[in-house]
Simulated scan of single mutants.
Amino acid sequence: MTAIFNQPQFQDADKAREYLEAQVWPNGRICPHCGVVGEHYVLKGKSNRPGLYKCADCREPFTVTVGTVFERSKIGLHVWLQAVHLMSASKKGVSAKQLERMLGVTYKTAWFMCHRIREAMTAAPSKMLGGPGSSGIVEADETYWGRAADEEGIRYPKGIKRGAANKMKIVTLVERDGDKRSFHVANVNAQTLAPILKAQVAKTARLMTDEASYYKKPGAHFASHQSVNHSKEEYARGDVTSNTAESSFAILKRGLVGTFHSVSEQHLQRYCNEFDFRWNYRQSQGFSDTARANMALIGITGKRLTYRRTHAPVFAFQ
């Protein structure tokens, strides 16, 4: 990690800006105001900061950070690049307290930086899971974490309502040898699962789950629905298994328990997105830590996350 941070883009703000421009604008500068790609004017002079351009069409000034999660940040871009690399390279995540110590910023700043980077790591799906060109197999499973809140936003006390009822709920879909998508949901039942599965999984896919009854009705929508019976200690039958989805939960929970310790319900979806991002750009898919961090940098555009918005509850599906 030390050798990585010796590179110029991690040491100098101007070098970091040039590096960021190369990732965000690989085919030329793009005006964030009107979307025109072209040879926009470079604004020079003592009154203009480095990296300031003027659109040749709409005549508006802009930099590479305008319209991104980095916009209006007073943190140097080289520090941002360090944070992005640390979060992209840490398999089980890196806490805001750790970033506070390593980057020399306040805890509040580190916490906000983490959430803005998670926003960059969150991308709209470009294709259905299990569709043409894939293995055609999608595993679905659910897990439970921490303590959920009641209707007034108050967490259930420890020891009350034992079992899954008072825990936060996460549903994950994993394409065999492909991508993973996780959803923080209010309830796990057929009514909740059906719209998620139909929106994310190709109709031609083979859906694989455990024996839970709430998968049966939504599963009829796909080419086939096969399950393993965990209650009878059946975990694989030929290629029928949900072990890939369960192994992804192992990484998520080790991060939640060992790195973050306590994650509230209002932010859980963002943490799920972060772990999904690292899974989808994992080493077995041909991505190094640097390549993964570059994908996160590409994802900064067209997104803004204010401090107030970070406190708004995030549910994938109600």
Score class of each variant (00 low, 15 high):
L20Q: 01
A312K: 12
V174I: 08
I137M: 04
G28C: 10
I75K: 01
I75A: 02
N243R: 06
M87N: 07
F62H: 08
V24L: 05
K15V: 04
M168Q: 13
A194K: 12
R101I: 13
A212R: 04
F315W: 15
A89C: 11
P157C: 06
S213D: 12
E39M: 02
L86S: 00
Q283C: 10
P61S: 12
A223E: 13
Y144N: 05
Y281P: 03
L193P: 06
A13E: 10
S182Y: 02
A212E: 00
Q98K: 10
M102G: 00
P313N: 01
D150H: 05
S242H: 09
K91M: 10
V64F: 07
S288I: 11
Y107D: 05
D57N: 13
K91Q: 12
A190V: 05
E152I: 00
R147S: 10
I137S: 00
L20N: 03
K108Y: 08
N48D: 03
L81A: 03
N187P: 00
S135G: 09
V42I: 14
A312V: 15
V24R: 00
Y53A: 01
E21Y: 02
Q23P: 06
Y307A: 14
K74Q: 11
C34G: 11
E151D: 08
K44W: 05
S47V: 15
M168E: 13
G45L: 09
L86R: 13
Y144F: 15
M208S: 08
I30E: 11
G133D: 05
